[in-house]
Design a protein around this nucleic acid. Structure first.
Lengths: 199, 199
DNA sequence: TGTTACATTCAACACCGTGTTTATGAAAAA
DNA sequence: TTTTTCATAAACACGGTGTTGAATGTAACA
């Protein structure tokens, strides 16, 4: 099935994607034009339109690939049926898996989640965090019955995790994957201690 | 000093800004053109360039105004010198002030912080949260000596607060300002309880 | 009243990126 | 060999940009 032509197409698309990511990281998505992509990738501008409708379609495809891969990666570690117990031993592996994935795709994610990136992607990746982590965790708690509370709890935690990831990406991943997972637990511990002060 | 001409300029700029916000909220910043702004505001396209270099300059000015106003609003409640004690009575007023401000500028903030908005603004508003809230809170804690920990703690909490605000803006501010401040404390309480499970 | 100052309008301009099309070359498939 | 398919090249109309110079309106001042 895999004809030479199909292989060529895949190669060209990967080529375009690669240079597109570098451009978005450097200049921001809004300042990237099809013309620039073609010049940078050393292809004809018409060739771009042979594969993508416009730069938005290319960005969409890149985002979907990332989201599907991330989802799959976590699902391997946390099967659908499993409810999360709140032991460090159970929470540690998925956190490590997430940071490993982020690190592997650091350039693309820096481009998409950075200052010049796409805020709609942030929303999508938060949804993934919610599906694979929070829903199993929060639903066990009695306070989770309140719809409004659930909604904002969800927003609070998924945004917090994403915020840490964005910070890590900006710092060029100075901390190791294991350190990042640990830091997350330290943060939760810290907030816990706040409670002894509050009211 | 306030000549009639200056007043006219201010009126026109406010007029442009108003329709600009409506356009960005409806179509997203990237799809807004100077042409559209001029048509919507019923002014000549040339008039726009009389006041702003381009749509980016207009967005910048709008953002700066919002950030300065927010900063001022909170600083009135929490003077610079004051260190935050972790009592609900001390934390409640600034939270209420923040949500009041967000509510008052809901349309503009929905436009800027929404799906089609500007991620660089998210970073800037997080910095404000950090300056007026977190720095006085975290610095008191021994664990805050660790630089990396401080950085990520900062990212975690400011992103979380912003995430809740974004959720609130999307839900068209169904919850009252007071409810939102309360929900924040409920969330902190909830996370505190997690600690009894972890490790 | 006329004059001055300035905001706004209007039409025209060159420029640039877009998305499409048509013709052409090259390499694989039939 | 003939056909299919991907990539190239050049040209096109289209639409938004940012600028210019002249005209218009309007409030302040003499």
């Amino acid at each position: 099935m895999a004809s030479i032509h199909e292989e060529m197409v895949q190669k060209t698309k990967a080529h375009i994607q690669h240079h597109f990511i570098a451009l978005v990281e450097a200049e921001g998505f809004s300042h990237v034009s099809v013309k620039k992509i073609a010049e940078r990738a050393n292809i004809n501008r018409g060739t771009f339109y042979l594969h993508y409708a416009d730069k938005y379609a290319l960005m969409d495809q890149l985002q979907q690939e990332l989201l599907e891969n991330l989802h799959a990666r976590i699902t391997v570690i946390l099967p659908k049926e499993a409810l999360l117990a709140l032991h460090q031993q159970q929470l540690y592996p998925p956190f490590v898996a997430i940071f490993e994935f982020i690190g592997e795709h650091a350039q693309a994610l820096r481009a998409i989640l950075g200052d010049q990136g796409d805020p709609s992607f942030a929303k999508k990746i938060k949804r993934v965090f919610g599906e694979v982590l929070l829903d199993r965790l929060i639903s066990q708690h009695p306070a989770a019955q309140n719809d409004a509370f659930r909604t904002y709890m969800h927003a609070f935690l998924t945004s917090a995790i994403l915020g840490v990831i964005q910070e890590w990406l900006e710092n060029c991943e100075e901390q190791s994957v294991e350190e990042m997972a640990k830091i997350h637990f330290q943060i939760l511990n810290f907030i816990s201690q706040l409670r002894t002060f509050i009211k």
